[in-house]
């Protein structure tokens, strides 16, 4: 299968010459299995360009396109591209949107809010494609044709989901956004001031431990693990309650899971290309000789794993 990156940035899009190489669009990854349906993971601003290309490339321009859209969570930087996804406005196209079930609001209502007056001129129910929403519960497993999808929750405000896709004799994990599992349990409660690091109460520590186990299981032996790499160590110390990781956290999970390659992803919007180069070099040096491959995601990078 082929994996192509359309948006690699976290928090908000960052246009400008200092982000041209890695790219300034927010999170969006395309997965094209050799023998399976088209899959998109997250719908940040990168989705807009993907949509334009799909209208040229596949059946989408003729209203015969179909795609499965897996959403990690509905924070703006993971959904803000959807209203600008051209295939949505072509009748006949089909979109299946998957995200975690919420207690209070149906998934369709969450997405409809983004497109309603007075935020956006075209309401979601006026789009022409058929859009179906599928709510996922913890640990859900399902098939998209020959693609096996599994998921587990992450440590992020309002809770994000990590996904694993198994297909074509290969496996890819997408794990963003998440804080490490050592300090603060991030769920539905708003945390204004972070507590002391490294000292969660026993109940939270147990939940974090279980969450980490779930993620390590999900990443077990994966060919690619695309992982939240937003922070430097110093940035994490200042903002541990924002729900993001450092490359060191990503390496630890990959090593525990025996994953083959780590893909650094979801870069801080404040990181210039040059500063990111330095971080990528440091990460490569750290894992030298351990067998873990390091790939730095950037817009338009395409990776092939398994059968092609």
């Amino acid at each position: 299968m082929k994996i192509r990156f359309w948006g690699v940035r976290g928090s908000y899009p960052v246009p400008g010459p200092t982000t041209n190489r890695y790219g300034g669009n927010t999170s969006c990854v395309e997965v094209r299995p050799k023998n399976g349906p088209h899959i998109i993971i997250d719908a940040g601003t990168g989705l807009r360009r993907l949509g334009k290309e799909l209208m040229q490339r596949d059946a989408f321009g003729e209203g015969r396109g179909s795609s499965h859209v897996l959403i990690s969570h509905t924070h703006w930087d993971h959904i803000q591209g959807l209203p600008f996804f051209a295939p949505l406005y072509q009748s006949g196209n089909q979109l299946f949107v998957y995200a975690r079930q919420r207690d209070d609001t149906h998934l369709r209502a969450v997405f409809a809010t983004q497109s309603e007056d007075p935020y956006f001129p075209v309401p979601f129910n006026a789009t022409k494609a058929d859009v179906a929403f599928r709510e996922l519960v913890e640990g859900a497993r399902f098939s998209l044709g020959p693609v096996q999808v599994s998921c587990t929750r992450l440590n992020h405000p309002w809770i994000a989901m990590a996904y694993r896709l198994d297909c074509d004799g290969a496996s890819v994990v997408y794990a963003t956004d998440t804080a490490p599992f050592t300090d603060i349990l991030l769920e539905n409660e708003f945390i204004k001031t972070p507590p002391r690091l490294g000292d969660p109460n026993p109940e939270h520590a147990a939940k974090l431990h279980a969450m980490r186990d779930g993620l390590v299981d999900l990443c077990r032996g994966a060919d690619l693990v695309i992982y939240d790499s937003q922070f430097t160590a110093e940035e994490y110390r200042q903002r541990p309650h924002w729900g993001h990781s450092t490359p060191d956290d990503a390496i630890a999970i990959c090593n525990a899971a025996g994953a083959k390659n780590l893909v650094l992803f979801h870069y801080s919007p404040e990181r210039s290309d040059d500063a990111q180069d330095v971080i990528v070099d440091e990460v490569r040096k750290k894992v030298e000789g351990t067998g873990l491959g390091i790939i730095a995601a950037q817009e338009q990078l395409e990776l092939t794993v398994g059968d092609d």
Binding site: R9, Y12, P13, V14, P15, G16, P17, T19, N20, G23, G24, N25, T45, R48, Q80, G81, F84
Partner: peptide, 18 residues
Amino acid sequence: VRGSIPAPGPETNRYGGN
């Protein structure tokens, strides 16, 4: 100075994509 949605990329460096 941009409308609708931010447009990052080298082709918007001069006028800006925000």
